[in-house]
Design a protein around this nucleic acid. Structure first.
Lengths: 134, 134
DNA sequence: CCTAATGTTTACTAAACTGGTGTACTTTTA
DNA sequence: TAAAAGTACACCAGTTTAGTAAACATTAGG
């Protein structure tokens, strides 16, 4: 029941970029140094945020990263999903429909978990980086 | 961001016991067979539920497990905590106070996560096995 | 009091995951 | 064209996960 370290680092990388003037390009080394993240590891995490449409990158001299959109339009859920994929608190709630209780009808526990998961997702969605940098 | 398999099995073991008449002793093999759980693995999980005050056991011939209290007084949170320990969605929110951003003030993300975690715990607490067996 | 049926405890294990690091490569600017 | 950035892929040690195995402790019944 834990977000992993990569997601935690991603939160802080996005938070750091959100604190910069819009469109300012910040190199990985600066983000890593300021947020106390191993640079190489951050460099491996960033492409996930790019694929998730959260940040954009610029290569070459003077390159780095910048937010792809307004901090207010980036939620905690966006970052979590970009790094870890869809939020599922139980395997049976994953996309592939895996259920260890397959064939057993009336899986009440899993119905309850689905309800809880939905609320968790809504909570993650309710926090955006525009509010967090205040 | 996942409950583990042991917790999932524990949910179903408790649910199965909750469906039995109060105080009826059910052996591990029956629970395992009915709920499609590897018997040996279930046998390893049950002591956690006992330590958590959720079930009680009786050894020897005719032995097995039975609920330690009314199903209405057992929540999903009780089972999760018995099997996995305290719920923490981020390492920095664990008891030991670990924070990868130690020394950095105003950790806004973690404040938001603490808020979300609290709501998740409340949700888990709001579902009890008395309701689930209906 | 002996035996078989039950749960308990501890140790072990293969596979996957976590949190990185290393190396080579591509892109871009000066 | 060289240096400074990000990208991609492979590798790795340690931990966790999901079990299994074996020896042990307790209890009911004969």
């Amino acid at each position: 029941m834990n977000l992993n370290q990569a997601t935690d680092y991603a939160f802080r990388a996005v938070l750091y970029l959100a604190g910069k003037p819009k469109g300012e390009v910040v190199e990985a080394h600066e983000i890593a140094r300021q947020q106390v993240i191993p640079t190489r590891f951050l460099l491996k995490i960033m492409p996930s945020l790019i694929k998730g449409g959260i940040v954009k990158s610029q290569r070459g001299i003077g390159g780095g990263y910048y937010l792809a959109k307004d901090p207010r339009d980036i939620t905690l859920l966006d970052v979590v999903e970009a790094v870890e994929g869809p939020v599922t608190i139980n395997r049976c709630l994953a996309d592939d429909g895996y259920c260890s209780r397959q064939g057993i009808p009336n899986c009440q526990v899993h119905n309850a978990l689905a309800d809880i998961q939905e609320k968790l997702v809504e909570e993650l969605k309710s926090h955006n980086f525009g509010d967090l940098i205040k």
